[in-house]
Amino acid sequence: MPKIHPETKVLIIKRLKTRSTADVADTFNVSQRQVQRIKKTFEDTGDVFDKPRSGRPRKTTAREDRLLARKSKASPFSTAAELHETWSPEVPVSTRTVCRILSRNGLRGRISAQKPALNKRQLKNRVAFAKAHSLLKGWMLEKWKKVNFSDESSVELHHSCRKYCRRPTGARMDPRFTQKTVKFGGGKIMVWGYIQYGGVREICRMEGNINSLKYQEILATSYIPNHKRGQILQQDGAPSHTSISTSKFLKAKKIKMLQDWPAQSPDMNIIEHMWGRMKEEAWKTKPKNIDELWEACKTAFFAIPDDFINKLYESLPNRMDAVLQAHGSHTRY
């Protein structure tokens, strides 16, 4: 509830002599409850000013707080301790106070999102692709339904990510509160897959380094048998995907491609969400080796509901619009 200026309170008291509480509240754009409190305070004390409140007074001034907020905005990756060292208020304060001041200014500490680095050429290509596949160019859901999205992904046996826990003071190294890690992730597998609107999907395990011939074998066994006339295959610009050999193979098989796919664009490839969900479910089974990991991934991939895939397709027009709104930069997807 916003604080009312003392001069406004005086005007409210004057208006109450001739008008109702509801009329005064509407006139000054405040609630009736606030008007009633001001009236009662005036009747009890003969004044409209707030009484001095108990509690420790603030150590920093509003000007010092603004300076700290500007320093944080200029260097968003600086910690509270680092900002504390470069900020010099008249009264010494703790790092915790620095955190509270930043929070009051809407600058709360968060884990930064990890996104691919984009150069000017890539930004330009992302905008060009989004424009060419926007609603204005006729790319509605019905047209996106014809596109089959594909990609590769690596899955570690033991994944590592930041996990929060609640523990007593001094128990940081207690085994109950530590996250166990394995060097190099304990091994990993590479998978390739694709999805269609309606829930049709396929996944296969990839062995060793993938060259053009291996990629063509994957397409021949895992994609082409399910390919229908009029469908379009989306793939990224990996060398094995865009080589002369693969291009001739796709042309011979009469596979139509989604042209000019921009590099560094996982937010535009909806199969990335499939990989994320598949990995989460696979890791929950706690596989002991990479063969068990592959079985868990395969089970999790085919267990994802068809409706989940359909909703990803439905988000594509909004994804193109988001890329345009961001001028080719990262989007929330």
Rank of each mutant, 00 (worst) to 15 (best):
K163F: 09
D151W: 03
I290V: 14
T246M: 11
N226W: 08
K71D: 07
R19A: 14
T331K: 03
A171Q: 14
S329M: 09
T246F: 08
K311T: 04
Q325F: 08
R121N: 10
P76G: 07
G109P: 10
T178R: 13
M1K: 10
N119T: 08
R66E: 10
S329V: 00
I203Q: 00
D236Y: 01
L83G: 05
W87L: 06
A62P: 00
F302M: 13
D65I: 09
F308H: 10
C161I: 11
F177T: 04
N209V: 15
Q264T: 05
Q122L: 11
V98Q: 06
M140Q: 13
Y313T: 01
H133E: 00
I270M: 04
V191C: 13
F184E: 12
A322E: 03
E7G: 06
F28A: 02
L136Y: 09
C297D: 01
K279W: 04
A69L: 14
A132E: 12
E292A: 14
G230I: 07
N105D: 06
F308Y: 15
R19D: 11
K124Y: 07
S315N: 08
N148I: 07
K188W: 11
T86C: 12
P76W: 11
R121M: 11
P168W: 10
N310W: 00
H330R: 01
D151F: 03
N310D: 12
Y194Q: 02
Q264C: 15
G208P: 02
K163G: 10
R167K: 15
T21N: 10
L157C: 11
K284W: 03
Y215E: 05
A74L: 11
V155A: 11
L213I: 13
T60P: 02
A130V: 00
S75A: 12
R167C: 05
W261T: 03
E85P: 04
P57Y: 07
S160W: 12
V98L: 06
K40V: 10
D306W: 09
N310I: 02
S243V: 07
A25G: 04
M140F: 09
A69K: 09
N209E: 09
F28L: 05
T61R: 04
N125V: 03
S222M: 14
Q179T: 14
A69N: 02
I309N: 02
R167G: 03
E314N: 05
P116Y: 08
Y223H: 04
K59R: 14
L141P: 00
G109Y: 10
L293S: 06
N119Y: 09
E7N: 11
C161W: 12
